[in-house]
């Protein structure tokens, strides 16, 4: 039996799980709920404000980290969940999941560099 290469993806999964545990609830609240429910004014998500935020190199780096790790976390857990639901084509599921995560990350890098 050969040693597994799963540590690569699991390491990212675990890191992503921790980051999403701390950040995702409050981020969903700020970007998706606070304004529609009138808890915060629409100026919070105004173009100039968000643009200045994302244009800052430090927050660019932070956003990249959040997106990268969240995607890998979700992709890896999705792969395991498919197996739990009886989908036994693990290699295919793994390839599609990780490919989507990689594409999303790549897209985020390109967009972040453009802003």
């Amino acid at each position: 039996m050969a040693k597994s290469n799963k540590p690569i993806v699991w390491g990212l999964f675990a890191a992503g799980g921790t980051i999403t545990a701390f950040l995702t609830p409050v981020m969903i609240f700020v970007t998706g709920l606070a304004v529609p429910f009138g808890i915060m004014g629409p100026e919070v998500l105004a173009y100039d404000r968000i643009h200045d935020f994302v244009a800052n190199w430090f927050w660019k780096l932070v956003l990249f980290g959040i997106i990268f790790f969240s995607l890998w976390h979700a992709a890896h857990r999705f792969r395991i969940t498919m197996h739990d639901f009886g989908v036994r084509a693990d290699r295919v599921v793994a390839k599609i999941s990780y490919l989507l995560a990689a594409l999303g990350t790549l897209g985020a890098i390109v967009l972040l560099l453009r802003i």
């Binding site: 970007t31 998706g32 959040i66 969240s70 995607l71 979700a74 985020a108 967009l111």
Partner: peptide, 19 residues
Amino acid sequence: CIPIGIYTAVLIWGLMRLS
């Protein structure tokens, strides 16, 4: 993982619209 994945996609979509 499914809503968290979709939410991250929404974030990336937002970055695209912002750009």
